[in-house]
Design a protein around this nucleic acid. Structure first.
Lengths: 191, 191
DNA sequence: TTGTAATGGGGACAAATGTCCTTTTGGATG
DNA sequence: CATCCAAAAGGACATTTGTCCCCATTACAA
């Protein structure tokens, strides 16, 4: 449920500590909006520590959460490849530290560092890999089943992530989430 | 609704016609299952011509369609990067022609042909880019709105794609699809 | 041509989910 | 300690969507 990428995390840390590249560290307080949907930015971020949510919002103000991002996950990178605007907003849930790289630096690394290139390829592939089944699962199964699944994946999710965000992640309203949680508390020993 | 990638299509055609690389052409009849979910394959496909559906099926036999693939779209490529099993099945809707490349050839191209490398990066990024808003749109808006949107994107979709597949694409049942279509026929001049 | 299966269409009802509101809770702050 | 505010919980009702049917049409194979 909270995606991470230890391999990339380790690698970027190595690049950063070696110096010589323009990789900056940035700090954000909780609830900081780091990038906004439909904009352009000149840099990408890679999470060093903390949790962020990546979400799309529609004109009615509803949010649909795409992913929760943990250490090693990057965001703002899609725009490097095709020069279009961002599709998601990203907001910190906890205190957040990121490494940031300009598009230029990022491109340079892609072209000259084949290990980096391969790691990014893999990271993109995994974003596809994990997104696909999640949405279909959510459509196909009742809310309660989805919650049980999340509980397996990340037992403390209810304590760590605000209810509103959990609801937006599953694609339901907070009301429906509450109903399902109440049922589960009566039925399942897990809850 | 039917994704294509003209740039990659052109490029692979060029590589193929130059010769020297092990790129094969393959032909499939309609309804051929080309790759199956949760398996391993040693090659990737890139569509030369025709339309295929890429779908996840659950244990109850329900299908959830991820994408309709047209010329220039590749499939079976995610597994090159992390050596895991396929997440989707892919089945031809029309007569289908593909170029196929062994993982080995594909990797070699990624490592030696930087134009190819960039095109694949971009293709992966676009798969992410297009998937995200689609699912959230489908959750947030009523079925009828989704159908109107599809009609804009691809006016002949009702004639070209079987109803069952349209329903699975939107993530609803054929019954609900029919209801919505009936309403639209009465209301909207488009239908 | 005829039988058979697959596809499309829709009625009736049940179930799940959303909407709208009100109440409760818990933590932050003066 | 009192007050305020945001988050959480849930009642009542409306709406949407699914489920389970059955029937009509079309495509295809014998």
């Amino acid at each position: 449920m909270i995606r991470t990428n230890p391999e990339l995390s380790t690698y970027i840390h190595k690049l950063w500590s070696q110096g010589g590249l323009e990789i900056e560290e940035e700090d954000f307080a909780p609830k900081a909006v780091i990038i906004k949907q439909d904009r352009r930015y000149g840099k990408i971020h890679l999470i060093k520590e903390g949790i962020a949510k990546c979400y799309i919002s529609d004109e009615n103000g509803r949010e649909f959460i795409q992913e929760f991002l943990g250490a090693g996950m990057e965001f703002g990178e899609l725009e490097v490849f095709d020069n279009l605007t961002t599709i998601c907003s990203v907001e910190s849930l906890t205190k957040l530290q990121t490494y940031s790289l300009s598009h230029q630096t990022y491109r340079k690394l892609l072209n000259t560092d084949s290990k980096f290139n391969a790691l990014i390829m893999k990271a993109l592939a995994n974003k596809i890999r994990f997104k696909a089944p999640r949405h279909s699962y959510q459509h196909s199964y009742p809310i309660e089943d989805n919650l049980l699944r999340l509980k397996q994946l990340f037992p403390e999710f209810i304590e760590v992530i605000p209810k509103k965000d959990i609801a937006n992640y599953i694609g339901i309203t907070p009301r429906s989430l509450n109903r399902a949680l109440k049922e589960l508390k009566e039925k399942s020993p897990l809850f």
